[in-house]
């Protein structure tokens, strides 16, 4: 009689899958944090024009968005369909831009980077230049001159 009992079955021990959820959850949290759902709800209808000489916007944290277009159907009864400017989550006038930009600037932690900030103008192609010029003028007045007119690549069409 041996003291040590042999185990009945021999074979590869089962790998426990108990930690699998942990791994998957870790991935899940990673993606949840990384995912940036649209930063603000866009309340204007925008179809950007085409252009061929476009460049990618690099540092996303240094980009400020200004939207210009006709309000979406939901807001038409109150506001009409004339083109409007949207800053963050609300409709705004061109005169509110200096304050908006100043706010955006404070969000950039490093003062050195503030000069590199770009204003991305997402403007509907049907909009008349009058409202765009107003925005441009406001930006020029506060010496925030780096602007990118967002457009889609002609090659993609």
């Amino acid at each position: 009689m041996s003291k040590f009992k042999k185990k009945g079955k021999k074979g590869a021990p089962a790998i426990t899958t108990a930690s699998l959820p942990d791994i998957v959850f870790m991935l899940l949290f990673f993606f949840m944090v990384v995912t940036k759902m649209r930063d603000s709800e866009i309340m204007v209808k925008i179809q950007v024009p085409n252009a061929s000489e476009i460049q990618k916007l690099e540092k996303k944290s240094l980009v400020t968005h200004i939207y210009i277009g006709s309000p979406v159907d939901k807001y038409v009864p109150q506001l009409g369909s004339a083109p409007r400017i949207q800053l963050n989550d609300q409709f705004a006038e061109a005169t509110q831009i200096p304050l908006f930009i100043a706010n955006e600037k404070t969000k950039v932690v490093r003062a050195k980077d503030r000069d590199k900030m770009t204003c991305a103008m997402r403007v509907d192609k049907g909009v008349k230049m009058g409202i765009v010029t107003d925005v441009k003028t406001e930006l020029r007045k506060i010496d925030f001159r780096k602007v990118s007119y967002l457009a889609t690549d002609l090659g993609d069409q």
Binding site: M32, T118, L139, R140, D143, R145, S148, D153
Partner: peptide, 23 residues
């Protein structure tokens, strides 16, 4: 996880870079 993977749209904005004239 798959939902978030699909929902993530890493959009790259591209546009015409312009330096506005000084005021």
């Amino acid at each position: 996880l798959i939902f978030f993977l699909v929902a993530t749209t890493i959009q790259t904005d591209s546009g015409l870079n312009v330096l506005l004239p000084a005021w």
